[in-house]
Amino acid sequence: MVSLVEPISKLENHPVVDNAIDELASKGYAIVPNFINPENADYLYRYALGLKDSDWQQAGVGRADNYTTNTQVRRDRIRWLQAQDAVERAYLDTMATLQQQLNRQLFMGLFDYESHLAHYPPGAFYRKHLDAFKGRSNRILTTVVYLNPDWQVHDGGELVMYDDQHQVLQTVLPKAGTLVLFLSDTFVHEVREGHRDRYSITGWFRHNTSINGVIDPTR
């Protein structure tokens, strides 16, 4: 089967990937337009549209025993990606190749990757938060890839990243194919309210803090 997402291995030594890794090393984050090509972004978008309602769950906050849903904090719905699904595996394979490149060039020691589709209906948001707290999570590097075609400024739904002085650092319009990478325990961020259905794939590269073969913390 031909991969539905263009493998990153085809982009080795390509300026798009090399520049992203350089930016990540110098700033702790990178924004990469056209990380996946428009055809594959559209395929993943249509795949998400075709999922049944029962394929999604209400997103929550916290992990494992501390996991709760709170619609005052976030109102998106999610679907965890599984390697058993061919479409989802193609995306996971792409990110596995990116993981290898990050480890080779930045010596980050990334061990595995977890990821989910995210659907933000009109009016949905995710308030300011960190994806990880120093010393309390094995999530190291956050990834977000956007899927919606023809997203416009008036559609809202921007990702807003803040610096350590709580000033706006970056505002990212969720354009199809764009990848955002940032250190999970460093950048407070939020998803602003959108005015149309918004689809993306969020994931985390993680360190290995497993005990007796059980990766901790579980999602």
Rank of each mutant, 00 (worst) to 15 (best):
F107L: 06
D76M: 04
F35K: 09
E190L: 08
S200E: 01
N103S: 11
K175P: 05
W80V: 14
L98M: 13
I215W: 07
S54A: 02
Y199V: 05
Y126N: 01
E158H: 12
D22P: 00
L4W: 15
L51I: 10
H195E: 05
Y199H: 06
Y91N: 10
V172I: 13
Y29P: 05
H14P: 08
P15R: 14
R63T: 07
F133M: 05
E193F: 01
L102F: 07
E114W: 13
N13P: 06
L130W: 15
Y45K: 01
Y47M: 00
W151C: 04
L11R: 15
H166I: 02
A96E: 15
Q152H: 15
A30E: 13
L141M: 11
R219K: 10
Q72K: 11
A90Q: 07
L44T: 01
A20F: 08
G213I: 07
P174Y: 00
R196D: 00
R74C: 02
H154G: 07
H154P: 02
W56A: 03
A86G: 03
K27Q: 12
G50E: 09
D112W: 02
Q72T: 07
L173A: 06
T186P: 03
Y199M: 02
N70R: 11
Q170Y: 01
T143P: 03
L141V: 09
A30P: 13
D185V: 07
F125I: 00
